[in-house]
């Protein structure tokens, strides 16, 4: 496989790999490094790539494993967590700014979810994979995925409702 073939194969899902890495590792730099690492690993094995039935699903599984390892390893102990600071919102703030803040708030809520749920929400709500694909990527059955997803969505809803009622607005 030549470089051009590889790039055109990887192009469609490299952003998905990056977003999943960022979801798990939080910091943009860490996620970029992880994505690069994964793409290089794929490139090294480019002769075997033809044997994989679904390169995209395989890459997502790889990303998940890589990032979880990364989080467990000591290297990640000095992982920088980048997030915006949340200032108290006055009712006089522009609606747009407020909306952006509450959008950021969602990402903050998602950071607090357990890893497994983070991955599932990322794959389902952001990347819009169907349950069958997610089941393959995570090596779980569909029911377990639905249960986890439902829990995650309810947690987000709960926290969002709380902030909505006496936080942001």
């Amino acid at each position: 496989m030549k470089q051009a073939d590889f790039v055109s194969l990887v192009m469609p899902f490299k952003d998905k790999v990056f977003r999943l890495a960022k979801r798990l590792l939080v910091s943009r730099e860490e996620a970029e490094d992880a994505t690069q690492e994964i793409l290089l690993k794929l490139w090294k094995n480019n002769k075997k790539i033809g044997d994989y039935k679904n390169v995209e699903a395989f890459s997502m599984t790889m990303t998940k494993n890589f990032c979880l390892d990364r989080l467990k390893s000591k290297q990640a102990s000095n992982l920088k967590i980048v997030h915006s600071n949340y200032t108290d919102n006055n009712s006089s703030l522009q609606h747009q700014v407020e909306a952006k803040d509450s959008v950021d708030w969602v990402s903050k809520i998602m950071e607090d979810l357990p890893e497994q749920q983070k991955i599932i929400v990322q794959l389902r709500d952001i990347e819009e994979y169907d349950y069958e694909e997610i089941a393959k990527m995570l090596d779980m059955n569909e029911t377990a995925i639905r249960v986890n997803l439902s829990r995650a969505r309810k947690t987000i809803r709960e926290k969002l409702t709380n902030t909505h009622q006496h936080g942001i607005k």
Binding site: R19, L40, S102
Partner: peptide, 27 residues
């Protein structure tokens, strides 16, 4: 339903995030 809005907006926004770094494939 106003309070669900940021969640769905966030999902749509996140979807647009891109990986911009170049990968040195010719190592």
């Amino acid at each position: 339903f106003e309070h669900y809005k940021p969640m769905f907006q966030y999902f749509s926004l996140s979807q647009k995030e891109q990986y911009t770094k170049d990968v040195p494939l010719n190592t």
